[in-house]
Amino acid sequence: MIWDGSFRKKIIKYVNSDTEPFLREGEIIRAEGLTKCFGDFVAVDHISFSVKKGEIFGFLGANGAGKTTAMKMLCGLSKPTEGRAEVAGYDLKWEVRKIKRSIGYMSQKFSLYEDLKVWENIRLFGGIYGLSDKEIQIKTDSLLERLGLEQQRNMFVRSLPLGWKQKLAFSVAIFHEPQIVFLDEPTGGVDPATRRGFWEMIYDAAEWGLTVFVTTHYMDEAEYCDRVSIMVDGRIEALDAPSALKSKYNAANMDQVFHTLARKAKRDE
């Protein structure tokens, strides 16, 4: 190896990484070279990006592009093979527990307990996040009022329509007032009108300063985001505001942008 000073630079970079904050001003998530391998298969391939505080960040990609895996790493559900990331000011490697306390999560599958009543679900998840009984009671009342679900308080979640279930699941995910909420394809299987209603809730929450990290494959939803990233074969192929992406790829809508990029995919679904 020829000595060209690159080694010294690496050391300086390493030392500085401890003194300089990893997150830049206004950022709440930052990932550098984040990678996840399952054996030989590289599901997520050295992705680097950052999310600003209060932003609605869309995470797009075809099935199998690696978006769910990437999101799971950021939530602390899956350990990165390589790379570094900070979420809400905590290191993903060392401070997973602190991260978990400051994030909310709504999974792809509708994930409340169907055989518990509406208020019991809220009570359960409030308790899991360490809220006191009194807090839970007050917040449950205001939440149900806001959702217009006071009448359904004692109903089993099983018997609610899917659109309502999703709204409830979202409300439960942000019940403990996290800094960031991760939504993994939150609106699967409902009609466009219900989807719009759901996104209104997301906007409301973002106005309060909540950062929303959302994966989706509905391209009309991508238009709602402040910025979107598009993943193809485990890499981020594009990352910008929807309007900027559209002009860059000379497309009329996000659907065209997505297809231009997704055509490059070599990986099977």
């Binding site: 306390r101 999974s107 899991i128 360490g130």
Partner: peptide, 13 residues
């Protein structure tokens, strides 16, 4: 199967 496990694992518990 139902996905509730994931939600529990994301929590600080």
């Amino acid at each position: 199967e139902r996905g509730t496990m994931e939600v529990l694992l994301v929590s600080p518990v």
